[in-house]
Computed example of a mutant assay.
Amino acid sequence: MANDNSLTVLLVEDNERFRQGLRTLLSFYNGNGSSVLEVVGEANCLDQVLKLTKDKSPDLILLDLQLVGTDGITVLVSLKQINYAGKVLVLSAHQEDEWIFRAMQAGASGYVFKNHLGTQLCEAINTVTNSEIYLPSEVASRFFRFFQAYSDSCLRACYERNLTDREQEVLYWLTQGASNEEIAKHLYVTAATVKAHLTSIFDKLKVNSRSQAIVTALKLGLVKA
């Protein structure tokens, strides 16, 4: 951040008119609040997001869940892998519980409905930049009910995939963006042991890479948020 009252923002949205609307809304907030929101870049696909995040290190990313050639869940997972330290606020037309849960599980700090931007965005930005979680009041209770149901389904999914307790632990840290060495430290095992567990996990999930394993784990509900 440039100063205590400045917040750098990256807009991730594949609709140019919607991005312009976001810029206008953020400019309005600048004229009516104490903080200055500085848009440092715009992206409409995964490659652009990762490049701009590395180059600009934005404090906040405003992320749509539907982008050119990918989805916002994959973007969230990829941001974890490059150790992005800022906050991600999802802006989406999807109001289904599953979409909200998957986004939060993948690392979002908040979720705003696109048709409620005018009433929710300012509060959401203030909330997530204060290291708190933002969810619209009308879905908060539904979200936590979904979370409770998910905890049970997570156990069933792991059982069906025949994942051991240790493999579940490795998979959890993998979804947090940890390297083999970092996972080894968390679990008090060697990096070689972690590599062996990952080989088994890849085989059971029928994937060939860390990224595929993370996305598959999140989509199948194999790890808890």
Rank of each mutant, 00 (worst) to 15 (best):
E138N: 10
P136Q: 06
P136A: 06
L163M: 02
C122T: 08
E167V: 06
D152C: 07
C122V: 07
S153I: 10
S137M: 08
Y159N: 11
Y159I: 10
S141N: 10
R161I: 05
S131F: 13
A140T: 12
E167G: 02
E123N: 10
Y159T: 14
A124L: 02
D152H: 13
A140F: 09
E167D: 02
C158N: 14
R145M: 13
F146D: 03
R161D: 04
R161P: 00
Y134A: 00
V139Q: 05
I125H: 01
S153D: 10
L121C: 05
R145K: 13
E167M: 03
F147S: 15
E167S: 04
C122Y: 13
P136N: 01
Y159G: 09
A157E: 11
E160N: 14
F146V: 03
I133F: 02
V128I: 05
D152E: 14
F144S: 05
D152R: 13
V128Y: 01
A157Y: 03
I133P: 03
F147D: 13
N130Q: 08
T129L: 12
E132V: 02
A157R: 12
V139N: 02
Y150G: 11
A157F: 08
Y150H: 15
E132Q: 13
R161S: 10
T164P: 02
A149Q: 15
C158L: 14
V139Y: 07
F144Q: 04
D165C: 04
C154R: 12
N162K: 12
D165W: 03
V139I: 15
C154A: 11
E160S: 09
E160C: 06
T164N: 05
E132S: 12
F147A: 13
A140W: 04
R142L: 06
I125Q: 00
Y134L: 00
S141R: 07
L163K: 04
A149Y: 06
S153L: 11
F146E: 09
T127W: 00
T164H: 07
Q148P: 01
S137H: 05
P136D: 03
N162I: 02
T129I: 07
E123W: 01
Y159S: 15
R156M: 11
L121F: 06
N126Q: 09
P136M: 05
I133V: 14
E160A: 10
T127G: 03
Y150C: 05
S151V: 12
T127A: 02
I125D: 04
S137A: 13
F146N: 03
F146Q: 10
L135W: 04
N126D: 08
N130P: 04
E138K: 08
A124G: 05
R161F: 11
N126M: 08
E160M: 09
R145V: 12
Y159K: 15
Y150V: 01
T127E: 02
V139R: 09
S153Q: 12
A149M: 11
Y150K: 15
C154H: 09
S141T: 13
N126H: 11
N130W: 04
T164Q: 03
D165M: 11
S153G: 00
R156A: 15
